[in-house]
Computed example of a mutant assay.
Amino acid sequence: MPRRSLLLLAAAVVMLYFLIIMFMLSPLNGSKSTYYGHGYMNHFSYRQLPAVNWCKELRWRSPPAPHVVALVSYPGSGNTWLRYLLQQATGIVTGSIYMDHSLRVHGFPAENITDGSVLVVKTHEAPPIGRDKFKSAILLIRNPRDAILADFNRLHKGHIGTAPKSAFKKKSHEHKKTDWATYVSHELVGWESLHRLWLTRFAGAVHVVFYEALVQDTRAALQGILGFINHTISEADMNCAISFKEGIYRRKKKLQNFDPFTSEMYSALDEVRNRVLTMVVDYQKKHNESVRDNTVHQLSG
């Protein structure tokens, strides 16, 4: 092979390795995971994120727990932030049924680990058919308006970015409606279905956590979760977790100069939200639980 061709080949190989490294380092803008089956592309960019101040060095559960706890949520409901809080409080890594390389190199080394060596396992899917996969579940519920908007932002700007106004106005060639309107209609069905299946079809115990309650009283919400999974921590550990509760995994709320939701969207959001709230109340009554976290008011506003 001529020398010139060899040099070009070597340059191509170097460039490929460089692109792979850049992809791995892109902060919290992970690849379009398989659980997002939409025609939206993630935005990739390289930014330097501050280091995470962990309360203690992260470790694996030893010995592994005999039962695996699912951490269930609709995308955009704060799953990554709750995983971060749990890792801060306990020092134990949390797993996921997915492989998000950007999360793996930014504080979540147990991506794609789903056994008892992790504290909880992230999933956005319906309950698995196999009864032995998860013995219990933490169901994190967020107002569908905020969850759907947050995930739309993720699809355009990654885990911590915000979609530009133009993204809400774009129309597809196949439909007269905007991509945003189509997205809201489709995802609202998925939001309701996910919660209905875990509240009515899952055989194990379900601990409901409202994102809004997690924000309002992080300490109490974390204590409830740790009690549910029967994991005890010291007061010092909890205080440390609360002092670093913001971290880098919670998207900063950016005020927009427009409301992306129409009156028709709000009506649909209210109907679906109220049906899910009724399911939560029915589940808690059926299992002789008090209606926790002032349930009726958690998804309001």
Rank of each mutant, 00 (worst) to 15 (best):
R219F: 04
Y249H: 10
A65Y: 08
M24V: 11
H43D: 10
A236E: 06
R4Q: 11
E125V: 07
D293T: 06
V105A: 05
V206Q: 05
F23M: 06
W54L: 07
E111R: 00
L19T: 09
A126R: 07
V184P: 03
E289A: 05
H67I: 10
A205S: 14
E212C: 02
F202W: 06
N153S: 15
A221R: 03
L149T: 11
T182N: 09
D132M: 07
R61Q: 09
Q223W: 01
C240T: 00
T232E: 11
P63R: 06
R83Y: 03
R47L: 13
F261L: 14
F44E: 00
R196K: 12
I97V: 15
F258Y: 14
Q256Y: 15
G107K: 01
I148A: 06
S77E: 04
D270H: 13
V120A: 02
H297Y: 15
E264D: 15
N112Q: 10
M41W: 11
S33E: 06
F134M: 10
S193W: 04
I92F: 07
G76L: 11
R196G: 00
S45C: 07
T295W: 12
N230S: 14
T162C: 06
F202I: 09
L277N: 12
E111F: 03
V68D: 03
Y249V: 02
E235G: 05
D100Y: 02
Y35E: 14
L119A: 04
H106E: 02
P66H: 09
A167D: 11
S45R: 12
P128A: 10
L155Y: 04
Y283I: 03
T178I: 13
L6K: 15
W198H: 04
R83K: 15
R3E: 15
S136E: 15
L71M: 12
L16F: 12
G91W: 00
E271P: 03
L16V: 11
K285F: 11
G116S: 07
L197H: 08
F23K: 05
